[in-house]
Amino acid sequence: METMQLPPQWSTFARQVDWAFYFIYYLSVFLFVVIIGAAMYFVYQYRRKPGVKAEPTGHATVLEITWTVSPLAILAFLFHIGFRGYIDMSVAPADAMEIRVRAKKWSWDFEYPNGGHSNILHVPVNRPVRLVMSSEDVIHSLYIPAFRVKKDTVPGFYSTLWFEATQTGETDLFCTEYCGAAVGTTEISPGDPNVGREGNRRHVGHFSMITKVRIQTMAEYNTFLESILRPPTDPATGREATPEKWGEILYRSQQCNTCHSTDGSAMTGPTWRGLFGRQRQFTDGSSANADANYIRQAIIAPNAKVVQGFNGVMPSFAGTLRDNQIDALIAYIRTLR
């Protein structure tokens, strides 16, 4: 539904917010017309006329008390509608799907539950989505006008917001906390919608930290999720990463590195250096050769067999890592001789 002053209503919040907006809007118009209309009428009616003096100002205590106290009722009602809407916005449903948002100068990164990333926010329609947001540098703010949601991303803290889209389509996402600009112009990557407007270079900054939200049906959304699991781009070569390289990226992004070293030292878990092909002794007395099947098993059901000298504290990555990601990790471990 297109409204006069506000963006399209594409989330479950939008109608409530717009109702509040228009309530205040018409209330304001009414008050403005009454007050200023009266003032203008007085200015005309009591314009200075020769020989007519102003009437000395009297008292009207009842009137004064009325217009001091009665606005309180309207204000209390206004607070109430804002408060109710805000409560709804603050508490995400328990089944909300989580998307991780990382803001930095001057781009957005969205990470989906399967570990894939994108720069455009994809969300399924009619499904509550909760954004868990952080910033890598300064404060940014994520704003989707069509959803009527906004929240700052603060370095060193997590902030969250949630919404449920009600319509498929594409809408704008802005950064609304001022975050500077790059010096000079920057070359635009091919495919940037701004190509051609000012040649192939443009200014980037707070104002260019805008992207799109693409609201899709569940089937389209799932197809999208599959598509982002292709290997990411290797920053060194600019091409799609090799399985080994992808494994190395996953080693960090999935935070394997917090428990597993690659230099031979034991941390919470065994090191990955020289792991592939080695004989493992387990706490239950059995042993096995660390081949591809063993490593795959250790990722999906880590505590079925625990290596001697360690505690079974590793979480399962079943459902988090896809097959091709596990393959990539194995390929990476094989390189650590």
Binding site: L6, F13, Q16, V17, A20, F21, I24, Y25, L78, F79, I81, G82, F83, R84, G85, Y86, D88, M89, S141, Y143, P145, R148, V149, K150, T176, E177
Partner: peptide
């Protein structure tokens, strides 16, 4: 508009 919570979320900044 700015004092009412849910409209301010939309209008802030």
């Amino acid at each position: 508009f700015c004092a009412v919570l849910n409209t301010d979320i939309h209008l802030h900044d």
